[in-house]
């Protein structure tokens, strides 16, 4: 089967590859680029563990072909901390115990990133609505909501973070 050349900007670096069209973005990121912070959970577009930011919005990378993302900008969890400094959302999850096993965390954090871009001051209900597509089987979500609130407070007035 013919392969297609693709060029993606991933966490600020240009990456070129040659993929079969059926190659899912999540597999490309993990298996070809070694970015294993993007997790594979349910593989059926439900759990949100594979969430990445594609062209400025959160998407489930198990439900996108890498060829569809050709020419696009991708940010994975590895792209969030700058110069060894945790992003305020990561800091929020750290400070508020927003994780236990951590499997859902990259997806939770990137969905939060999408939320705070659209709505910098979300209510608790809006936070829960925004994280509707991310499943956590450990924490019962209370601490996750607090983590997002911590991040929103910290980011208020702070300059927007580049993709």
């Amino acid at each position: 089967m013919a392969t297609h050349p693709i060029t993606l900007t991933v966490n600020g670096s240009q990456r070129q590859g040659q993929v079969e069209p059926r190659r899912l973005l999540v597999h490309y990121l993990r298996d070809e680029l070694g970015l294993t912070g993007t997790h594979i959970g349910c593989e059926t577009s439900q759990c949100g563990a594979c969430t990445v930011i594609l062209n400025g919005q959160a998407v489930k990378s198990c439900t996108v072909f890498a060829v569809q993302a050709d020419g696009g900008q991708v940010m994975t969890i590895e792209g969030l901390a700058q110069d060894g400094q945790l992003h305020p959302i990561q800091e929020g999850f750290w400070e508020e115990h927003g994780l236990q096993c951590g499997f859902c965390t990259p997806g939770m954090i990137l969905s939060t990133y999408d939320l705070l871009l659209k709505n910098p001051d979300p209510s608790e209900q809006e936070i829960r609505h925004a994280l509707h597509g991310n499943l956590c089987r450990c924490t019962g979500y209370q601490h996750i909501v607090k983590s997002v609130q911590y991040a929103a407070n910290k980011m208020k007035g702070a300059p927007a973070v580049a993709d």
């Binding site: 949100g48 959160a58 998407v59 489930k60 969905s111 609505h129």
Partner: peptide, 12 residues
């Protein structure tokens, strides 16, 4: 729109 899927599904 707000009751379809979840935010990531709605984004695509």
């Amino acid at each position: 729109a707000t009751v379809i899927g979840d935010p990531m599904v709605r984004n695509l």
